[in-house]
Design a protein around this nucleic acid. Structure first.
Lengths: 253, 253
DNA sequence: ATCGCTCTGTTCGCCAACGCACATAACCAC
DNA sequence: GTGGTTATGTGCGTTGGCGAACAGAGCGAT
């Protein structure tokens, strides 16, 4: 069973891991453990300790905050472009947010201690993690801005696109209820908005499934936030990025 | 003139600098330049290059995003507890946000290249900057959450308290117009809310000045977000924090 | 002392999103 | 199939915050 799964997956399906040199990737691959990440699994609670960092490949994780009254709001998402657990090497060990799987799938995990050791070498892994952290911060910023100024429809479009970018197909497996709790809005608001988008021919959906039919149409209904995040991720994490420039004068390199 | 100013200020007035060991602080002090940071000064524009990092002592800086339609929203603030310019060592060099002074005062600045070099030593400066970065992320997260779920009144209370914590006195020098653009709400909304708070005896204000009369009253009108941010800054940046724990197994230390 | 600019106070209609309640419809397990 | 469960659709009334427009009041400059 494990062998079957392994043959279908490769650490390079995670774009952060893929950005590492073959040398470093070979070095850490023995420590990467393929794990199933089922919908709803909580990878850490607010204030909890992480035993592993996670590199999703087909799963998507939501970083969100649960308020005293139980309401939730997503702060950022983590898919195959990223890693869960940056607080380990940032020095705080915990965060005030929670992480849960909202699109089931697989990912690789690595023991926290190994990750910290690798980070502390100060080499390409550290630089990659720091660049990713900055990209994640951009996503958080844009979430804040979007929450302040944009309509539910704009936010839904943004969110669908960001999620779609992390998936191999154009179909999302999730209920409107789930989306509403991610965006921190009413479920009825999603029903209404999704209905509009379907009427416009941008998406189609049935109970628990959403298919994107017209990606560029969705983009034009989304707010600017989507492209800001997407472009910043590309700028910071494309292989030809500022990595080398940054390394100038770095005694680690 | 410079001598007079210098005699009144000390790098230790910035709590990040104060958290460094005397040895390291002595080492970088020659490179710290005391600068005046007048209200409205733009320290960097979205996408621009930073020539310096800034350690505010009496000034407060707003990190905010300007939308295509000109509306603004603050993402986080930076005062004497922090540093402006983390994108320099995170590897991205620029951010999508903008930084402007919203409470005039003074701060120290340091040439960007020197900061990067110091960071790249991988020692206490790096660990301090990373812990600060995580605290800043918490602030961003809470801004996102607060924007989603809390009323203008709750947000105003939170914002006043966060600003107050960065000031030596209980008086804020700023117009309602300025506050509204920080929070990304209408100026009238601030007028109305500030009027309520004054009627309740929590604050008093006159044209361009706000005095906090009842701090704990303000706290009880604020949402949970204020304390989340405050506690997380304390946890991550108090001198007895996880710094040493983090350093365990770190070949730099 | 006065003028003029800027900041603050107040009103009005408007609308997006909310909270609640309940109807219908799809899917799953048996 | 059929029944139960869960997801989606719809219709209220309510409300917090918006946009615009303008009146008054404070403060600084001259």
């Amino acid at each position: 069973m494990v062998a079957v799964i392994s043959s279908q997956h490769d650490p390079r399906q995670n774009r952060l891991l893929a950005a590492l040199s073959a040398e470093i990737l070979d070095q850490i691959t023995p420590h990467l453990e393929l794990v199933s990440m089922p919908l709803g699994e909580v990878l850490y609670e607010s204030g909890g300790q992480l035993q592993h960092v996670f590199f999703p490949i087909t799963a998507i994780i939501s970083l969100h905050y649960i308020m005293e009254n139980g309401a939730t709001a997503e702060i950022a998402g983590v898919g195959n472009e990223g890693v869960l657990g940056i607080s380990l090497f940032m020095g705080g060990n915990t965060t005030t947010s929670r992480a849960a799987v909202y699109t089931g799938g697989h990912g690789y995990r690595m023991k926290a201690r190994l990750m910290v050791e690798e980070f502390n070498r100060g080499g390409p892994m550290m630089r990659l993690m720091l660049r990713y952290t900055q990209a994640l911060m951009t996503q958080m910023c844009q979430t804040a801005v979007c929450n302040r100024h944009h309509s539910v429809e704009q936010q839904l479009c943004r969110w669908l696109l960001l999620t779609l970018d992390r998936l191999p197909s154009n179909e999302l497996i999730m209920t409107q209820e789930l989306i509403s709790s991610m965006l921190g809005v009413r479920r009825e608001g999603i029903t209404e908005t999704a209905g509009n988008l379907q009427r416009l021919g941008l998406i189609s959906y049935r109970r628990g499934h959403i298919t994107v039919l017209d990606r560029s149409g969705l983009e034009s209904h989304a707010c600017e936030c989507y492209l800001v995040v997407k472009n910043e991720f590309h700028r910071l994490l494309s292989e030809t990025s500022a990595a080398n420039k940054f390394a100038t004068g770095n005694k680690f390199s």
